[in-house]
Write a protein that binds this DNA or RNA. Structure first.
Length: 649
DNA sequence: GCCGTTTTCGGCCCGACTGTTTTCAGTCG
C-alpha cells in the first residue's frame, strides 16, 4: 500500500452509484485499520478492518451486485458495522464520520514511520504525543538530538535502531524484490549447507512463498543438538556477513552484504523505463553496496519440519493451521504439534517433548487432515478449504514452458538481435519464441515504423522456412508490443496488424494514466482488449515493484470481459510479465482469471538473452496464483498456439 | 469490529526476542 503518496479518502464517482469500486473500498478498509492502530484502538478491532479488506479484495462477484442482493453481511468478516459503512459509501457516496475523522486527524508522516523496522504503532503514537514528532524527518532530528533515549520505555539502543531503520527505509523502502532476496538467500543457503554436520537447510519466509517482495530472509537449519555450537560458530565466520545483530543458542541474526557472492554483484540489463521508476543509476549503486537482514534458526532434526512450517508462514495461514490444531485437541507451534492433555501448563520447548512426530511438513498437514500444501499457496486464500476437499491445483512448473512471447530485439530497445534471441531460446530447449518489439509511438524505445515491422516479418518468415526445411523443431512468432493510445486504440493500421501472428497491447504513458481515475482507465482498456487484433494484454497495471504503484483500473471487470470474449470463441489472454521488477498481472488476480477462463501467458519481456530466463519468476507467480499447466498458453505446442492466435473473432 | 451462542458478551493464535525493566510492553512473523 502506497508509501509516499498521502492517504486520502477517495472522492465519490461523479456518475453516481456505485460511487466506489471494490478496489477503493478494500484499500480504505485497510487504511482505516492502520489509522486505528496508530490511534491505539483495540487490536482485535483493527484486525476486523484488515480481514474485511481482504474479504472485499478477494471477492469473485461484483461488489455492487452483492450489496444490491443484500448479501454483503453474509461475507465472512463483514458484519453489521462494516456492512453498513460499506453500503453507505457504495450506494450513497458518503464515508462514515469516524473514518473521515481518522483520515483528517492522523498526520501522514506517522504512516510513513510505520515502515521503520522495529517501530510500531504504539511507540509512534507515544513519540507523537510526547515529542510532537509527526514525520520521519522530525524523528531523525530528534534522534540526533538524543531526545528519544530520554523517553520512558526507550533507551540508547532503541534510538540507534530507529536511526538504522530510517537508513534502511530510505535505501530500499525496507523491502526487497524477490529476485534480490533469492540471490542472497540461495547464496547463504549454499554456504551453510556446506558446513559439517548440517543435515537440513531450507529458505523459509516470504522468499519461500515467492512473494513479489520480501522483508528479510529466514533460514531454518536442522542438525543434531550436540553440533549446534560449532555450526553456529561456522556460520558466524562465513563470508558476506557484514554484521551480527544477535546470536543466541537457536537464533542467529545477521546482516549480509554483496561480498557473499563469489562473482561481482551484477543486476544485468534493466529496461530504461523500469530503471527510471526505481531510481536510475543511483539504484544500481545502491544495490551494489546493498545489504539484507537474515535470520537463521538452528534446530534439532525432529523439530525441523515444525520450525520450517512456522517460519514459512504466512501469518494468516499459520493462524488457520493453529486453529485447526486446537479443534483437534492439539497445539501447533514452531517446536511441534502437541496434544493439549499431555502438557498441562508446560509451554515452549518443555511442552514440545510431547510433540507428535513429523518427518516432513507433509506429515504435519496429514495430522491435521489436509493434503500437503505447497509454500506458494500458504496465504489463507482458500487453500485450506480446497485442501479439505482434496481439490488443490497441480501447479505449473518452469520445465513445462515451450517458449515465450513478448520479447524485444535490437530493432527497438533490446540488446540482442533476432538471431541471438532465437539461438538463446533454442538453448533453453524452447520450441518457439515470440518477438514483439515496441510500436511506433514509443519513440524513446525506438518503436518500429510500419515499414520496419513488415521488414522484420519478412526476415522471420525466411528463418521459419529455413528451420522447417532443416527439420528443426523451432519457429519464431511475429508480434508487436503495441502501445495503447487514446481511447484504447492500437498503434498501427489494421492492414499492418493483420500481417502479425499476435499483438501484445500495453500501456506506456504511465504518467497520463496515473492522473486519470479508475473508470477512465478501465474504459480505455476495455476498448483495447475488444480490438480484434489484440491477442494479449501486457503488464496490465504498469506497476514497478519498489518503484511505483500501477495506475488505477478495475482489473476484475477487465478480466471478466476477457472471459466473456473467450466464451464467445475469441482468444484474449493476459500476461504475467515475468520481469522481477514487474510481476504484473499480480498473483492475487491469477486465480480469478483462471475462474473466468482467461488464458495466461508467462512473458519474460526480455531485452537481452539473459532476460529470457526471467520466465522462472513468472512461473513462481503463476504457481502462487493457483495456475496449472493447462492455464498457460506457452505450455502449448506451436501448432496449438497458432490455432489459438487465429481466433480473432 | 466479528463471531457464536449456554442469545448478549467474552474471546479473538501464539511464542520469541529485545530493550527496557526489576516483571513487562512492544514488535515481529
Amino acid at each position: 500500500m502506497g508509501s509516499g503518496t498521502p492517504w486520502k479518502l477517495p472522492k465519490a464517482r461523479a456518475k453516481g452509484s456505485p460511487y466506489f469500486s471494490r478496489n477503493q473500498i478494500s484499500k480504505v478498509l485497510h487504511q482505516v485499520g492502520v489509522l486505528l492502530e496508530l490511534n491505539g484502538a483495540n487490536p482485535f478491532r483493527t484486525r476486523s478492518y484488515f480481514n474485511g479488506s481482504r474479504t472485499i479484495s478477494n471477492l469473485n462477484d461484483d461488489l455492487g451486485d452483492i450489496i444490491n442482493t443484500g448479501k454483503l453481511t453474509e461475507l465472512k468478516g463483514i458484519g453489521k458495522g462494516l456492512g453498513s459503512s460499506i453500503r453507505r459509501a457504495v450506494l450513497d457516496g458518503e464515508w462514515v464520520e469516524d473514518w473521515i475523522e481518522l483520515f483528517e486527524s492522523t498526520p501522514n508522516g506517522l504512516i510513513e514511520m510505520l515502515g521503520i523496522p522495529n517501530l510500531g504503532p504504539k511507540r509512534i503514537k507515544l513519540l507523537n504525543e510526547k515529542l510532537g514528532i509527526s514525520n520521519i524527518a522530525e524523528l531523525q532530528i530528534s534522534c540526533e538530538k538524543h531526545e528519544i533515549e530520554e523517553l520512558d520505555g526507550f533507551g540508547k539502543k532503541s534510538q540507534q535502531k530507529i536511526i538504522d531503520g530510517i537508513q534502511l527505509l530510505k535505501r530500499f523502502n525496507a523491502r526487497r524484490r524477490l529476485d534480490i532476496g533469492l540471490l542472497y538467500g540461495n547464496a547463504l543457503k549454499n554456504l551453510i549447507g556446506n558446513i559439517d554436520h548440517v543435515e537440513k537447510i531450507e529458505l523459509a519466509g516470504s522468499a519461500r512463498r515467492r512473494k513479489e517482495s520480501i522483508g528479510d530472509l529466514d533460514l531454518v537449519v536442522g542438525a543434531e543438538i550436540k553440533f549446534h555450537e560449532t555450526i553456529s560458530n561456522s556460520i558466524l565466520s562465513l563470508p558476506g556477513i557484514a554484521d551480527v545483530k544477535g546470536a543466541g543458542g537457536s537464533k542467529i541474526s545477521v546482516i549480509l552484504d554483496t561480498s557473499i557472492f563469489e562473482n561481482k554483484f551484477n543486476l544485468g540489463n534493466i529496461d530504461d523505463g523500469v530503471l527510471e521508476a526505481i531510481g536510475g543509476d543511483e539504484y544500481e549503486k545502491m544495490e551494489a553496496s546493498g545489504t539484507i537482514d537474515a535470520q537463521i534458526r538452528l534446530v534439532s532434526l525432529n523439530m525441523f519440519p515444525f520450525t520450517l512450517a512456522y517460519f514459512t508462514g504466512s501469518k494468516e495461514h499459520n493462524i488457520r493451521m493453529r486453529q485447526r490444531a486446537l479443534d483437534r485437541g492439539l497445539k501447533l507451534n514452531e517446536f511441534g504439534l502437541i496434544p493439549l492433555d499431555k502438557i498441562e501448563n508446560k509451554v515452549g520447548i518443555e511442552a514440545a517433548k510431547y510433540s507428535l512426530e513429523a518427518k516432513s511438513e507433509k506429515d504435519i498437514y496429514k495430522m491435521l487432515d489436509l493434503p500437503y500444501i505447497v509454500p506458494e499457496l500458504r496465504e489463507d486464500l482458500g487453500e485450506i478449504e480446497e485442501g479439505e476437499k482434496n481439490n488443490l491445483p497441480e501447479l505449473v512448473t518452469s520445465n513445462s514452458l515451450l517458449g515465450a512471447f513478448h520479447n524485444h530485439t535490437t530493432l527497438s530497445d533490446g540488446e540482442a538481435t533476432l538471431e541471438q534471441m532465437s539461438d538463446a531460446a533454442r538453448k533453453l530447449n524452447w520450441k518457439y519464441l515470440g518477438i514483439s518489439d515496441h510500436s511506433q509511438s514509443l519513440k524513446i524505445a525506438n518503436g518500429l515504423s510500419p515499414q520496419e515491422l513488415i521488414a522484420q516479418g519478412d526476415i522471420i518468415k525466411k528463418y521459419n522456412s529455413e528451420w522447417k526445411q532443416s527439420n528443426t523443431n523451432f519457429r519464431v512468432f511475429h508480434g508487436v508490443e503495441s502501445d495503447i493510445l487514446e481511447n484504447g486504440k492500437l498503434d498501427y493500421k489494421n492492414e499492418i496488424l493483420e500481417t502479425l501472428d499476435y499483438v501484445v497491447a500495453s500501456v506506456h504513458a504511465i504518467r497520463k494514466w496515473k492522473n486519470r481515475d479508475e473508470a477512465e482507465n478501465t474504459e480505455d482498456l476495455f476498448n483495447a482488449i475488444e480490438n480484434k487484433y489484440t491477442t494479449m494484454l501486457g503488464h496490465p497495471t504498469g506497476r514497478i515493484i519498489q518503484g511505483r504503484e500501477g495506475y488505477e483500473v478495475d482489473m476484475h471487470a477487465i478480466i471478466r470481459r476477457m472471459g466473456e470474449l473467450n466464451q464467445e470463441g475469441i482468444f484474449k489472454a493476459i500476461e504475467i510479465n515475468a520481469s522481477p521488477y514487474r510481476l504484473d498481472l499480480d498473483w492475487r488476480l491469477c486465480k480469478f482469471a483462471k475462474m473466468c477462463g482467461v488464458p495466461i501467458s508467462i512473458n519474460p519481456d526480455a531485452h537481452d538473452i539473459s532476460g529470457l530466463k526471467d520466465v522462472k519468476f513468472g512461473t513462481y507467480i503463476a504457481r502462487k496464483g493457483w495456475l496449472e499447466k493447462s492455464d498457460i498458453i506457452n505450455t502449448k505446442d506451436s501448432i496449438e498456439v497458432m490455432e489459438l492466435f487465429s481466433k480473432r473473432g
